[in-house]
C-alpha cells in the first residue's frame, strides 16, 4: 500500500548467539510471506540469509541464542545499544536453551571431556538467557519459535502495535482445537498445564505429552503439576527430562525440579 511506501521501512537485524539456527530458519521458512516481509522491512543485517551486512542502528533486532562466552556477554551489550526494540526468539534466547544443562554440571569436566585442548576454549560456566544480560522488549518462546507467531509479531511491530503474545497454558489451545486431555484420558505425563502457549498445542494432538518447549506459562503452578503427575504414577526419572530440557534454566522449571526432589 502507498501508506507504507511513504514511511521509512524499519531496519531489521538478526543476531545469533549460542543456538542451532533453527529459529532464524523459521523466518526463512516463511516462503509464502517472505517477499512481503522483505517489502515491509529493510533487512540490514541477517548473515544467515545475506552477505549484505550493514552497520546499526537498527529498529528491530531479532536475537537468537543464549550467552555462553565472555565475548558474547560483551556482544549482546553492543546489540542492545544498536537496537531500538529487541525481540528474543526461541528457548535458548529466552531461557538458556538445552545448553543450560551445563549449569548443573562441572563446566571444567565438560571442557576436558569434549576438547582435546581445553585451554583454547573460552566459555562461561553457565548458559543464560538474553534477558539476564540486557533489557528485552519482547520474547518469543519455543524450540523452535512458531513461525506464525514470529510473522505476526513482526507485522505488529512494523505497524506500530504491541505484539500479542498470549501467556496462558497450552491446555486452553488443546481445548480450542478439540484435543482430549492426554494426561486425564491416557495418563501420559504432560507439561501443558504449566507451559506457555504459542505452539498451537501440537504434541497432545498426536497423543504425546507436552514437553514444555515454550517454557513456563504466566504464574504457573508447577508444584501442583509435579504432585499430580507423581500421584498418577509418573516417576522422577520421567519428570526430570521433561522439566530440564530446552527451558530447564527457566526459574519456574528449576524450582519445580527442586520441589520434585523434595517430594521423594
Amino acid at each position: 500500500m502507498a501508506v507504507n511506501d511513504l514511511k521509512k521501512r524499519p531496519r531489521l537485524a538478526v543476531f545469533k548467539f549460542a543456538s542451532c539456527d533453527g529459529c532464524q530458519l523459521s523466518l526463512l521458512d516463511c516462503e509464502d510471506e517472505l517477499l512481503t516481509v522483505a517489502g515491509l522491512v529493510d533487512i540490514a543485517m541477517f548473515p544467515e540469509a545475506s552477505s549484505r551486512m550493514e552497520a546499526g542502528p537498527y529498529d528491530i533486532a531479532l536475537v537468537e541464542g543464549s550467552i555462553t562466552t565472555p565475548h558474547d556477554a560483551q556482544r549482546i551489550q553492543d546489540v542492545r545499544k544498536q537496537a531500538t526494540t529487541i525481540v528474543t526468539i526461541g528457548a535458548c534466547a529466552t531461557a538458556g536453551g538445552i545448553q543450560s544443562l551445563r549449569n548443573w554440571a562441572s563446566h571444567e569436566d565438560y571442557l576436558r571431556c569434549v576438547y582435546a585442548k581445553p585451554e583454547y576454549i573460552s566459555s562461561l560456566a553457565t548458559s543464560t538467557a538474553i534477558a539476564d544480560h540486557v533489557r528485552v522488549d519482547y520474547e518469543l518462546r519455543g524450540c523452535p519459535v512458531n513461525r506464525h507467531q514470529l510473522l505476526s509479531a513482526l507485522t505488529d511491530l512494523v505497524h506500530g502495535r504491541k505484539p500479542r503474545l498470549p501467556a496462558h497454558s497450552v491446555c486452553l489451545d488443546c481445548k480450542r482445537r478439540g484435543t482430549v486431555c492426554v494426561e486425564v484420558a491416557q495418563g501420559i505425563p504432560c507439561l501443558g498445564p504449566v507451559t506457555h502457549a504459542g505452539c498451537g498445542a501440537i504434541c497432545p494432538a498426536f497423543d504425546r505429552g507436552c514437553y514444555g518447549c515454550f517454557g513456563p506459562a504466566a504464574q504457573c503452578n508447577c508444584n501442583s503439576l509435579v504432585t499430580t503427575l507423581q500421584s498418577a504414577g509418573t516417576t522422577n526419572d520421567q519428570l526430570l527430562p521433561l522439566l530440564r530440557n530446552f527451558n530447564g534454566a527457566a526459574p519456574e522449571f528449576q524450582a519445580a525440579v527442586q520441589f520434585m526432589n523434595e517430594q521423594s
Binding site: 503452578n221 508444584n223 499430580t228
Partner: peptide
Amino acid sequence: VATRCLSCTNCTMV
C-alpha cells in the same frame, strides 16, 4: 485451593 489449582483453564473449557 490455589495450592492445587493449575489455573490451566481446563475446567472452563470443558
